[in-house]
Structures are given as C-alpha cells and as structure tokens.
C-alpha cells in the first residue's frame, strides 16, 4: 500500500500498518517517546501544528477514539473540528462532495472512522495534495494508530520485541485491531505472535499472516509475555457464531486462573472499551498486570507522533546554524 507514503518514503497518510517498513514504525515509536514528556509540563502543549486544521470525520460513533485524536491534535496546537456524520443529516450530499467542501475550508488533515473497510483509503485517494488522512478504524480492515500505541506500550514495558511471545485473544475475525497489531508486531520483529480464539471467530486465512493459532487458553497463554485481549464485537456479530456470552467467558474470558501459565511479569492489554465478564474479568482488568489505562495515555503521544510526522516534512535533521 504505497498511497500512504511519499515517493521519498516518508509518511503522507496513515491508513494501515500493513507493508510499512520496520524503520518507519520504529521512528513513530521514537517520536512518540519524545512527545510522552509533554504531559509533564505545566503547559501541556507544543506549537508544531499551530495554524493547521484537523477534521475528525467520524461516520461511526466512537467517543473515546475521537477524544484521543482530538486531544493529540490540540496538544500539537492544531485547530480541531469534529464532524460526527453518524448523527448529522448528510442531506443527500455524497462523501466526495462533503470532502470537497471541507477541503475548501483549508483542512490539513482528516481523521476518518467508518464502518466500511477501505473508507479511509478512499478518502486518501481523493483528497488534494496538501491534505493527510489518518485511519481511525475502517470496518474489519485496520485500526493502525491503536496497533502503534499497543506496540509503544509493549516496548515501554519489555524494551524490545525480538524475544517476546505475544498472544492475541478473542474475536479476531471481526477485529481491525488484531489485523493491525499482527502486521505491526511482525514488522517490529516480535518473537512469536499467537492468536487464541474459537474457530468461528478466526478468519480462514489467519495463518498466512505468520501467527500460531490456538483454540485453548491454557496452551496459548503458556509463557506469554504479553496478553492482548480483544473486545467481543457484539455489535458486529451476525449469525450464531457463539453459543452465549457466559459460555464464551467460561472458555475464553481472561481470569487470574487462565493467566497462570503466562510469564509472571506478563502484561495484560485491551483496546477498550472492555466488556467486563465477557472477554475479561474485572479483577484482571484492574489487577497489577493490567496496562489498559496506560494504553489510553500512550495513545495520545503516539497519535501526536503520527500527526506531526504526516503534517511536517519528516527527515533526518540537516546540520543547522545554532
């Protein structure tokens, strides 16, 4: 997917983690690391995107994701507009017409969330040369900023990826988060990526992504360094893929007992919002190994990094007069 890169290899849009080189992913993580310090200042803001306009274009409601993008843009001093298309009457206006109008208002960046796979990519192919598009989740396809904040959180706890066993648990089939995580973590050189799910919640081609498949929590979590839970996508579930939620929890819900085979210093992650008692027990979600709220905090620095890399020229600094 080259639409997201400039010809010189730097980031123009951020649509998917698939196919991005390891070096670029590491640069995102390094840049995010320097933004993480911004919250220690009494003025939690840097002026990099002063005078730029970021439009959150949400065709699918998601308050949490929108807020973190909004906060990231505001901490970079951008002006932010939230267009919640799910509740706005579109008045027969096509998506393209709406884009043209927003571009005519000199927007520099569109953060797009849509229930259809490929929506952000479509927007990216139709915006003018000066505008960047960030994918904030498209259908079952990708949620790349979530994957990067997960990778950032893992690196902060574990240092590097090479020797790690990472288990992704739950509804992989409907999860754009899982797909983006697998692409990002593979490119970052993760030691072993496992997916643990019932057959009905796994896409058929999943092994082609280089993951090991487990249907049993005890075997799948053995010696795991990182346990990444997925949200059970109840709103996306069609047909009888599951017997019942209590039954799902009994077999695949993460409890302290099921976590026992993992390494003692394993961390537990979840992209939120969590379904307590469905995919994760409250005691685990709030327990000592949970880094779920850290993920939320880290999401701001990671989104600041991606926004500043796409909107600023990105390159190694030439020597400059001091």
């Amino acid at each position: 997917m080259s639409t997201q890169l400039h010809t010189d290899g730097r980031l123009r849009h951020f649509l998917t983690t698939e196919g991005l080189p390891r070096q670029l992913l590491l640069q995102i993580l390094d840049t995010a690391e320097s933004f993480a310090g911004v919250i220690d200042k009494s003025v939690k803001k840097v002026p990099l995107l002063r005078g730029r306009t970021v439009i959150n274009l949400f065709f699918e409601a998601s308050t949490r994701t929108r807020i973190t993008f909004e906060l990231a843009a505001k901490r970079l001093s951008a002006d932010v507009l939230n267009v919640n298309v799910a509740t706005t009457s579109v008045k027969g206006e096509s998506l393209l017409d709406m884009l043209r109008n927003l571009e005519a208002m000199q927007a520099d960046m569109f953060v797009v969330r849509h229930a259809e796979s490929g929506a952000a990519d479509y927007v990216a192919r139709h915006v003018g040369p000066g505008a960047s598009v960030l994918n904030a989740g498209d259908g079952r396809h990708a949620h790349p900023t979530q994957a990067m904040l997960d990778a950032f959180t893992i690196r902060r706890h574990k240092g590097s990826f090479e020797s790690l066993i990472i288990a992704i648990v739950g509804d992989v089939m409907h999860s754009r988060v899982a797909r983006s995580q697998i692409h990002a973590l593979s490119a970052l050189g993760a030691g072993e990526i496992r997916v643990i799910a019932p057959r009905t919640l796994l896409p058929r081609d999943i092994e082609s992504l280089g993951v090991r498949v487990f249907h049993d929590m005890r075997l799948g979590l053995e010696e795991a360094d990182v346990v990444m839970m997925l949200r059970l996508q109840r709103e996306r579930m069609q047909g009888a893929l599951l017997p019942s939620e209590p039954e799902y929890f009994r077999v695949y819900g993460l409890t302290e007992d099921k976590l026992a085979p993992a390494k003692p210093d394993a961390i537990v992650m979840h992209p939120g919002p969590i379904n307590r008692g469905v995919e994760i027990d409250s005691r685990v979600a709030e327990g000592p190994r949970s880094v779920i709220l850290e993920q939320v905090t880290n999401g701001i620095a990671v989104r600041m990094a991606i926004m500043s890399m796409t909107l600023g020229a990105y390159q190694e600094m030439p020597r400059e007069p001091a």
Binding site: I28, F35, A36, Y314
Partner: peptide, 11 residues
C-alpha cells in the same frame, strides 16, 4: 515546515 520532526530527541 521545512525539516519536519526529528525522532531521536531526548525529551
């Protein structure tokens, strides 16, 4: 706007 952001800066 000219040189962008340098990733390896210490905060």
């Amino acid at each position: 706007d000219r040189i962008g952001i340098h990733p390896r800066v210490q905060p």
